[in-house]
């Protein structure tokens, strides 16, 4: 039984609760719900987290922005081709400090999702993001990114307009930005499409978000020629926040309420608020040079390999 089925059962229990008048029965059912949550929904498999990360009700970039930044001003366009709705960008004040905000945006319904292309950006989106990052660097504003995308869009238009070049260019410029860059992975962190706005001094993941080189479906179809083995793939891929923290790929995990952030989104927003506040305090003290160097060195070290030095027969593990 996966997390979505468990959630259905929980909903049924909650419905039952609402239909009751008798106080002892209410107590009984609410105890039952509590134990059910604790026992059945607190231990999650990797696949459960994949399902939660993609949950239709999961709070997305727009929700987080609405909660955290009251005076958000959206800025649009890449000045080259068009405005990509899959990436939202703009300015906001956070504890009186101006910030540049960039994030991938998914829709809440089909209509929105078609407009936002299901959170899959085109090259225009990445170029818009880069434009805003360079602008932030000019005005010495920290950059906050929110990642929630299945990946960069694979299509004829995207390829014709240089999807690969746009992503490469973002990685290239981000490595040397002279302002703090803090990335939050909210839901799906899909491959290069996520990394293209996610090369951060600090990268945080929501507890039930995922970050991977490819979707579990894609991974299963490449390695085992069977997309239906996605569940199995999700276990092998090590894509959960806990795995990636252990690997040193991310800097921190932001706890979610039991059963996923959509049960009590405010808890998640508050946790992001606290993390953002603390991290900004830390990074605001660093010089422009230090920020760029720290970020570069962090990614320069990433990788898991061994080098055998034949001259003095020493093994070097990275």
């Amino acid at each position: 039984m996966d997390i979505l089925q468990k959630e259905q059962k929980l909903l049924k229990l909650e419905e039952e609760l609402r239909s009751l008048d008798d106080e002892t029965a209410i107590q009984e059912i609410s105890d039952k719900i509590k134990t059910y949550k604790q026992h059945m929904m607190s231990k999650l498999t990797s696949w459960d987290r994949v399902l939660l990360a993609r949950h239709v009700k999961r709070p997305g970039t727009q929700d987080v922005i609405n909660y955290l930044f009251e005076d958000f001003i959206e800025l649009s366009g890449d000045r080259l081709y068009e405005d990509d709705q899959a990436i939202i960008g703009g300015l906001a004040l956070f504890e009186d400090q101006p910030l540049t905000i960039i994030g991938q945006r998914k829709g809440k319904n089909t209509e929105d999702n078609i407009k936002n292309n299901f959170g899959m950006p085109h090259p225009e989106g990445y170029r818009k993001a880069l434009r805003l990052m360079k602008q932030a660097e000019k005005f010495n504003r920290p950059i906050i990114t929110f990642i929630d995308t299945p990946g960069a869009f694979p299509g004829i238009g995207a390829e014709s307009r240089g999807q690969a070049m746009a992503i490469a260019n973002n990685l290239y410029e981000m490595s040397d930005l002279k302002v703090p860059l803090i990335a939050f992975i909210l839901g799906e962190g899909g491959s290069g499409g996520a990394l293209a706005i996610g090369v951060g001094n600090r990268v945080f993941m929501m507890e039930n978000s995922i970050y991977s080189i490819l979707s579990p479906e894609g991974y299963a179809s490449i390695l085992w020629k069977d997309a239906k083995k996605a569940q199995e793939a999700s276990e092998v891929m090590k894509l959960t926040s806990y795995d990636l923290k252990e690997f040193g790929i991310i800097d921190g995990i932001i706890q979610e309420p039991i059963g996923g952030a959509h049960h009590e989104p405010i808890k998640m927003y508050e946790a992001i608020y606290r993390t953002l506040r603390d991290t900004l305090r830390e990074l605001n003290d660093m010089s422009r040079f230090e920020l760029a160097t720290e970020r570069y060195n962090k990614y320069r070290k990433m990788g898991f390999l061994q080098r055998f030095n034949y001259e003095n027969l020493q093994e070097v593990v990275k």
């Binding site: 990685l171 891929m237 090590k238 894509l239 990614y299 990788g303």
Partner: peptide, 9 residues
């Protein structure tokens, strides 16, 4: 997996 992705950055 993710180690490969990080090589891009």
């Amino acid at each position: 997996g993710i180690f490969s992705l990080m090589q891009m950055a």
